[in-house]
């Protein structure tokens, strides 16, 4: 496979069967390997689509500065493309994220402004909006409300999955900005009768939910409840357990959010088996495990791993 540039190689990631984790010959799990993107995560899709849209709309002009709240991956993707195209990149990132994310961001030339651990990404979003108001000349692409984020998945992830798995019955992905689920979900629902679109949402430690009041909560502007059919909350214990299952049984090295998604996918698979039905369940591997090695969760007991992740934005 040959491409004119790194950017051109984005997408068209493999969809890989999981013969050992699939519970029955007619209830199959398929993992979409989004770590095979230029910076190693699914966020490359959203980043490329958002930057291209902003250039087309005249928002991004040569030499511009991009500002973005991120817990890591989107910032890393934006930083790589920004550097290639000559933009300056500033990320607002919660301080309770793994050190690899900061190293990778700086490696691609991004500047980092840290936001408080308490309140997690909510706080990063709030802080970025303040900075944006003080610097109207900077361009905030704002992944939580940017239609190009969901469109990236409507135009790439969705078509790729359906082409590789025309018999798909369920699609499972993580719920962060909601872009992956909204875009892929809409694409599949328009073409596959009765397809189920399932969200797996990470359940963090208490510090992340440390809001001052309940009205300080946050729902991404992109989120449209009618696109998904079920939504599960998955804690760090189950996510770590599933990341290890994926390694032990299928040899796949994934990051933590993928563990949460696999947990939801396996729950769905068990239900299908119980009902005596067949299914082809596709789910997303968001990134590989490299960025999470310093958390130490790939070895030792599950309880230790859970403790290490307490208070961390692990997905």
């Amino acid at each position: 496979m040959r491409f004119d540039s790194l950017e051109d190689s984005l997408g068209h990631t493999p969809l890989i069967g999981l013969p050992k984790l699939s519970p029955a010959p007619n209830v199959r799990l398929w993992i979409k390997m989004e770590d095979r993107n230029p910076t190693g995560s699914i966020k490359d899709r959203a980043a490329l689509w958002m930057i291209n849209a902003a250039e087309r709309d005249g928002l991004l002009k040569p030499g511009a500065t991009i500002l973005e709240p991120t817990s890591g991956n989107t910032g890393i993707s934006l930083a790589m493309i920004a550097k290639q195209r000559g933009y300056k990149m500033i990320c607002v990132m919660p301080e309770n994220t793994s050190p690899e994310r900061s190293q990778l961001l700086r490696m691609w030339g991004a500047e980092i402004i840290y936001s408080e651990a308490a309140g997690g990404s909510n706080e990063a979003v709030r802080h970025a909006k303040e900075i944006s108001a003080a610097h109207p000349e900077w361009v905030m692409l704002y992944q939580y409300g940017n239609a190009a984020n969901a469109l990236a998945h409507y135009e790439s992830t969705g078509p790729e999955i359906l082409e590789d798995l025309p018999t798909i019955t369920h699609f499972v992905a993580g719920l962060g900005t909601t872009g992956t689920l909204m875009g892929t979900g809409r694409y599949l629902r328009e073409r596959v009768p009765h397809v189920e679109i399932i969200a797996a949402e990470p359940r963090y430690g208490e510090v992340v939910y440390g809001l001052r009041n309940i009205d300080g909560g946050f729902i991404p502007e992109l989120y449209d409840e009618s696109v998904i059919t079920r939504r599960f909350s998955v804690g760090s214990h189950d996510s770590v357990r599933r990341v290890r299952d994926l390694l032990d049984q299928e040899g796949i090295f994934a990051g933590l959010s993928t563990g949460a998604i696999l947990h939801a996918a396996l729950g769905i698979a068990r239900e299908v088996v119980k009902r005596g039905e067949s299914a082809d369940i596709a789910f997303i591997l968001c990134d590989a495990g490299w960025k999470y090695l310093s958390t130490g969760i790939y070895e030792g007991s599950l309880d230790d791993a859970e403790e290490r992740l307490e208070g961390q934005l692990w997905a």
Partner: peptide
């Protein structure tokens, strides 16, 4: 489990 809605990973 009751939780406030917060922004997830991004």
């Amino acid at each position: 489990t009751i939780l406030p809605a917060v922004a997830g990973g991004s």
